[in-house]
């Protein structure tokens, strides 16, 4: 409780250990905002491209995470079981 009371934004860390993976979404959004600001030729399409790029990154990284989970937790134990 004392740690919560002592929390100062930007000085102390946030307590997001249980939902740390959700930080992926704002991180991808800000990357898209910055990157598309200099890569979009016509700024009329800017917001559309930002949301498309954010979605691509979030889905891509989530798919990579799921793929590695399957590899490590399902496939590797199947092909190289631990000695009992």
């Amino acid at each position: 409780m004392s740690l919560v009371l002592a929390y100062t934004p930007f000085i102390d860390a946030m307590n997001l250990d249980r939902v740390w993976y959700l930080i992926l979404i704002p991180m991808c959004f800000f990357i898209a905002v910055g990157y598309k600001s200099v890569r979009t030729y016509d700024m009329k399409d800017y917001m559309k491209q930002v949301f498309q790029f954010t979605g691509m990154m979030v889905i891509g990284i989530a798919a990579l995470g799921a793929g590695f989970y399957v590899l490590i937790s399902v496939l590797l134990p199947m092909f190289a079981p631990m000695a009992e």
Binding site: P26, M27, F29, F30, I31, A32, V33, G34, Y35, K36, S37, V38, M43, Y46
Partner: peptide, 13 residues
Amino acid sequence: QRGFFAAVGVLGL
């Protein structure tokens, strides 16, 4: 517009 959004992206991160 480009400059503003570039700053938002970088400073947001």
